[in-house]
Amino acid sequence: MGVDRRQFLKLAGISAAFGLGGSVGFQLLRPGALDAAERMPTPYQMVFPKSQGNSEVMPNPKALKGRRWGMVIDMRKLTVEKARAAIQACNYYHNVPTIPGKQNIKWIWLTGYTNAFPEVENPFADPAIKNARFIAMCNHCDNPPCVRVCPTKATFQREDGIVMMDMHRCIGCRFCMAGCPYGSRSFNFRDPRPFIKKEYPKYPTRTKGVVEKCTFCSERLAVGKLPACAEASGGAMVFGDVDDAGSELRQLLRSRYSIRRKPNLGTHPQVYYLV
């Protein structure tokens, strides 16, 4: 027996006294052992390896960083032309196919006031609002039901709040489509590639059998660019950090009255409409 109880306590006391708790003490006793232990996967990790995130990849220094991404859509500025430009930009940069009929794919689209906000019923509302065309897209909810129901974690939430899809893990069960209360998800009922008008080579095309949706342009944020729709909207769509009280987005939310889609469901949508 190398170390008995008494000796161990003594050693622990000395380590603690010198502030050598945890890994430092461990390092002193057995140099290098911890690095190896950290890299060695546990049996659980061997069976269920982590597929997301790889700390060895250096992030782009230009990448936009936010604690909680959100979007403000200014309905005073959003004309149908600007909205169409935003939609077109999104469709182009993400190779969203144009499939006719009810098996179509939509990431971001235009809809009516009563469709976007069925609970905010008011027949005498300002016609400018009532007859306006609203942009519908994934709300990147703080409490997303789609993530809750996915049986494979193919849809997941990043720390900055973005709700993402892993197209290589999705089994196409479409539970997330039943779970989403905003109709923001589309399923590839067929091979989408023949329906892509002009392919954008820097973004992957999808395959039949998986679900897809808006990603808040995570691929653009990673290289320091704003989401394609915000960039193309002529200032009508403002993207920013909801957690940053000094952001332009928060400034807008303070200055004007905003509404969110179906807030009564407790999903905490992060797309705000200034009306």
Binding site: R148, P151, T152, I171, V211
Partner: peptide, 23 residues
């Protein structure tokens, strides 16, 4: 037969997700 990607069905066991009722 309802799955879009039936060949990936074992993902339900490879990535067990107790918060999903389907699991």
């Amino acid at each position: 037969v309802d799955l879009g990607k039936p060949t990936r069905i074992l993902n339900v066991m490879l990535h067990p997700t107790p918060n999903s009722i389907l699991f």
